[in-house]
Amino acid sequence: MSSTEQGTSSAAPAEPTTAPESAAAPEVPESFYYVHGKDKVVHKVSAGALQHSALIHGMISNLGYTEEQAKANPFPFENIDGDILQMVVDWCNQHKGKPTPPEDTNLPKQKEKLFDLVLAVNYLEIKELLTYCCKQVAMMVKGKSPEEIREIWMIPTDAEDEAAEKEAKKRAGKEAAGETAAAAGDAK
């Protein structure tokens, strides 16, 4: 695994910041965990920032890793594109220990990226970010006609859907027939 350890990227905020603590309170060192996506680029993220993700938070609790073990075993999310995971990490860092605002205008406007982000966020169980993303998805079609929505989101018409379904059935039928013939050939 190529491990480019990075607490931040150019798009992300500086090193994960710790919440200001009172002078009297003893300093508790913040623990960090490591995640990587499909591109294998490792992101160093504080436990505080990762609290947003119910999935990762649960994993941390289950594994009970020491700092060394965490560093040696980054959480691999092979199903998430590197740039999408970067966005998620950035968002978690930016909102670490803060109440989430009612709006988030920094989400991607690009359709494919937004949908990828929605799926990643849903997978990682980051509830607040999912709410923002869904709002952003809804905004994409604000004031649009059915035809425009179909075009923007590439929704097939009912006729196209039916044709695709027929085609899929036909293909499945052919494949099943081919398998049966092959099995018969093997038996001979």
Partner: peptide
């Protein structure tokens, strides 16, 4: 133990409304 916790899913790539 880490492998067990990571559920394998298809990669999220070039998704559209119909894939949601």
């Amino acid at each position: 133990d880490l492998e067990n916790l990571i559920e394998k899913t298809d990669p999220f790539y070039d998704t559209n409304w119909c894939d949601m």
